[in-house]
């Protein structure tokens, strides 16, 4: 009994509720006529699509910068890379890597500036990150209209200038990564092996990085900045580095997302994208100050599982689509829970 109590205390009741809810969804699914294999396949695909975006949270949490609500900044770098690679008509796997290659320097520069800003506002990173994300998305809305892209696949047909709100990458690099060694079981089950491998590769790199001297220092800065400073670590440099890493992973993450999804969503598309990523990480067991790769994997799976399963199961049961509402309540409830749990605030 005590062990159960301790387990619940450590995991936190919201996480357990969510896990139990998901298990129930999977159990109930066949009885209400939802094909489990398709649902499971969907969950896996969405897991792969979102995994890197969730992973992008880890460096900043570890260095004590808090949850990266400024993820849209990284996404913008990724979008610029993606759009440019389409403009260059790069196709297939080289196309995706062109996008990533172009996105990388942009992400590094944006992340660097963003990191410098966050160093000036220690203690209030999260609120400012949110609004930096929003402002940059709004700013890019103007840019998408103005930037001199001209590929007929992307610009508005009637005006000849300004990018469309969604750009299809079907003819370029849709599922370029996903389809590497992908396989089907039956009609409905599709396994995007390449995307998984790519995600696991990044997770592995992150795991190694966190064990290097720099990665150790980064974690220590998040754990106790005063201790780190007393040990000769330059706190601001570590924080900036973590922000650059997070931003860069955000850029890669959105490209992985788009190649699987098949569309590049511009304008207000990236606006709210930080929230599901943050929620997933927290559901996986991370806190505002600590996050691990296990948290990323577990959290993304649980969260995407719920997002995939609720609409189909609940729709079949109640003949109504409550998925959007459930998504809002679950993700924001989870963030709220994490924010109120940490009562110790260092200034």
């Amino acid at each position: 009994m005590n062990r159960i109590k301790k387990f619940i205390e450590e995991a936190g009741w919201p996480r357990i509720l969510i896990a139990v809810f998901l298990v129930i969804l999977f159990i109930v699914a066949p009885f209400v006529g939802v094909p489990v294999d398709a649902a499971f396949s969907d969950t896996l695909v969405r897991f792969g699509m979102n995994g890197v975006l969730v992973l992008a949270m880890v460096p900043m949490v570890q260095s004590g910068c808090g949850l990266n609500f400024g993820l849209p900044l990284g996404i913008i770098a990724g979008l610029l890379g993606a759009v440019t690679s389409v403009e260059l008509e790069a196709k297939g796997i080289p196309g995706v890597f062109t996008a990533m290659a172009i996105a990388t320097p942009i992400a590094v520069v944006l992340g660097w500036g963003y990191g410098l800003l966050l160093n000036k506002v220690k203690g209030e990173e999260m609120m400012i990150a949110t609004y930096v994300g929003f402002s940059s998305v709004a700013f890019m809305c103007i840019m998408w209209l103005v930037l001199p892209y001209s590929s007929s696949n992307m610009v508005w047909g009637y005006a000849g200038v300004g990018l469309r709100t969604t750009v299809s990458v079907e003819e370029f690099w849709q599922r370029a990564i996903s389809d590497i060694a992908a396989f089907n079981i039956g009609d409905a089950f599709y396994f995007p092996t390449g995307m998984f491998l790519f995600f696991l590769l990044l997770c592995g790199l992150m795991w190694v990085f966190m064990r290097t001297r720099t990665g150790t220092a980064m974690t220590t800065v998040g754990s106790n900045p005063d201790y780190a400073r007393a040990s000769g670590v330059n706190i601001n440099r570590m924080r900036t580095l973590s922000v650059i890493l997070s931003t860069w992973l955000g850029a890669l993450g959105i490209i992985v997302y788009e190649q699987s999804f098949g569309f590049i969503q511009l304008y207000m598309g990236p606006f709210m994208m930080a929230f599901p990523a943050v929620a997933a990480l927290l559901i996986g067991g991370a806190s505002v100050k600590k996050a691990s790769i296990i948290n990323v994997i577990v959290g993304t799976f649980l969260f995407q599982g719920i997002l995939t399963m609720t609409p189909s199961v609940i729709n079949s049961m109640l003949q109504t689509d409550m998925s959007e509402v459930i998504r809002i309540i679950v993700s924001n409830g989870m963030i709220l829970y994490a924010l109120t749990r940490v009562t110790k605030v260092r200034s």
Binding site: R213, T216, A217, T220, S223, N224, D226, Y227, A230, S231, G232, V233, K290
Partner: peptide
């Protein structure tokens, strides 16, 4: 406040400074 990483292991606390510097 300064001397320890309360949420980390004893081992990490002992070696961190040597590892870094």
């Amino acid at each position: 406040g300064v001397g320890l990483l309360l949420e980390e292991s004893i081992a990490w606390n002992i070696i961190f400074t040597s590892l870094q510097t």
